[in-house]
Nucleic acid binder design. Structure first.
Length: 176
DNA sequence: TAGGCGATGCTCT
DNA sequence: GAGCATCGCCTAG
């Protein structure tokens, strides 16, 4: 996932960014929304690989995940931050800021910038559709750390980021 | 940069 | 009724 490009095309235009930070929520993980089995809310996690799983958090923000396991197995990768690439004016308008570093730094912010909400929950990520995931162009330098903002299984090192990227979320100390 | 806090809509117990 | 895979605004240093 790291280094891949996420693009969302809407009637307002296209917006895209390079994925620089993710967190894994694998099968059997107590912190995963799929841990307690298939529910209405988490149904998209069980659809098979490369599907969108979108949910609302704290009543105010959306979070975007990409499913990662075969159909029937609930697991996903949370996209935590992007490096803005295309449609920057559109993202600035949606976010209400022109600070490039802040456009997609954090899971809720990148959803606002790309206009991702419940309407794309369960959608496929094949090229040609409104939501697209383009593979990384080349090798990337990966760092890892504990995940941010969770309480269960908080010690597992399942947060992955592009070393040296200025577009990472969380405190600097977490991304050496 | 770090820490506190309110807003807000679910799901689960 | 509690607890969140968060954010923006504020203050202190």
């Amino acid at each position: 996932m790291l280094g891949a490009t996420l693009r969302h095309t809407t009637p307002a235009g296209a917006a895209a960014g390079r994925i620089v930070e993710v967190e894994a929520y694998p099968p059997g993980d107590p912190a995963s929304h799929a841990y307690n089995g298939l529910r209405v809310r988490n149904a998209s996690m069980f659809l098979g690989p490369l599907r969108a799983y979108v949910y609302r958090i704290y009543g105010t923000s959306w979070c975007f995940n990409v499913t990662s396991e075969p159909e029937g197995v609930g697991a996903a990768v949370l996209i935590r931050a992007l490096e803005p690439l295309d449609g920057i004016a559109l993202m600035e308008a949606r976010r209400g800021t022109s600070v490039l570093r802040d456009l997609c730094r954090g899971p809720g912010r990148l959803c606002t910038a790309l206009a991702i909400d419940a309407s794309v929950d369960g959608a496929g990520l094949a090229s040609g559709g409104p939501l697209e995931l383009e593979p990384a162009a080349g090798p990337v330098r990966v760092g890892l750390s504990a995940r941010i903002g969770i309480t269960k299984a908080a010690d597992r090192r399942l947060r992955f980021y592009l070393r040296g990227s200025p577009y990472l979320s969380g405190p600097r100390s977490l991304s050496p």
